[in-house]
Write a protein that binds this DNA or RNA. Structure first.
Length: 223
DNA sequence: TGCCAGGCCGGGT
DNA sequence: ACCCGGCATGGC
């Protein structure tokens, strides 16, 4: 899958952020939200001077929420961003230095630290591990679940997230760039092709997808 | 007009 | 560990 997607679409160049702090903020804000809405929110944060971790924890009541309105669950997202900023500052000031120390933790320690923040779950934590800290962990998101379910890749029905994650990490060498690109390619596949209502006609995987085989005998298909 | 978006939490089972 | 409801904006 990775080879075919990469051949068809090339490197996606993820994560779309200028530095690890912007990356981490984006990881929280993009939860169940279109990325364009995240870009709006990031621009509003910057415009209000709510960019550095210090500014976010000290933001006047309501201003953070107002900035995050485009990200849908803005009250929750504001709390989650505060929690992330507090974690960063707990590792040192200024916040940029604290973040550098936080990201220098081992992968298990960093994951545990991130998961201790209310509103940061497995995927958001792994996003930050992979794209922020450069650890070779495979990120499993909703698209990945949908795609792997449709193609019949279902390692162990009892444990969704970790079964898929471990299976991919065993199948591919622990190469950070490859994991970054594979996840980004799967997101694109989920957005453009393997949607709730599939558009298998434009799928780069085509004959490699079991869903396509069972879908329509006559029509060409993909995931 | 609907459909759908790069989750997470807390409840129940 | 899964399933469900709640959260609650904006673009294509």
């Amino acid at each position: 899958m990775y080879g075919r997607l990469l051949q068809a679409w090339g490197p996606q160049g993820w994560w779309p952020a200028a530095d690890p702090w912007e990356m981490a903020m984006g990881a929280v804000l993009t939860q169940a939200v279109a990325w364009r809405n995240v870009e709006m929110a990031l621009a509003r944060l910057k415009a209000h001077g709510l960019w550095e971790p210090e500014a976010i924890v000290e933001a006047p009541p309501g201003l953070l929420e107002a900035s995050l309105r485009p990200t849908r669950y803005f009250s929750s997202k504001a709390q989650r961003l505060r929690g992330l900023a507090q974690l960063v500052l707990a590792y040192g000031r200024p916040g940029r230095q604290g973040l550098a120390r936080l990201l220098a933790l081992s992968a298990p320690s960093l994951r545990q630290a991130l998961l201790s923040v209310r509103g940061i779950g497995p995927e958001t934590a792994d996003d930050i591990l992979l794209y922020g800290a450069g650890h070779p962990v495979f990120v499993v998101d909703r698209y990945t679940h949908r795609i792997f379910l449709r193609i019949g890749f279902w390692p162990d029905p009892r444990y969704r997230y970790h079964a898929i994650q471990r299976a991919v990490e065993r199948a591919l060498p622990p190469d950070v760039v490859q994991y970054q690109e594979f996840h980004a390619l799967l997101v694109r596949l989920g957005k453009e092709v393997c949607r709730p209502t599939p558009r298998c006609g434009m799928c780069p995987l085509a004959d490699g997808c079991r869903h396509a085989a069972g879908e329509a005998a006559g029509r060409r298909g993909g995931v």
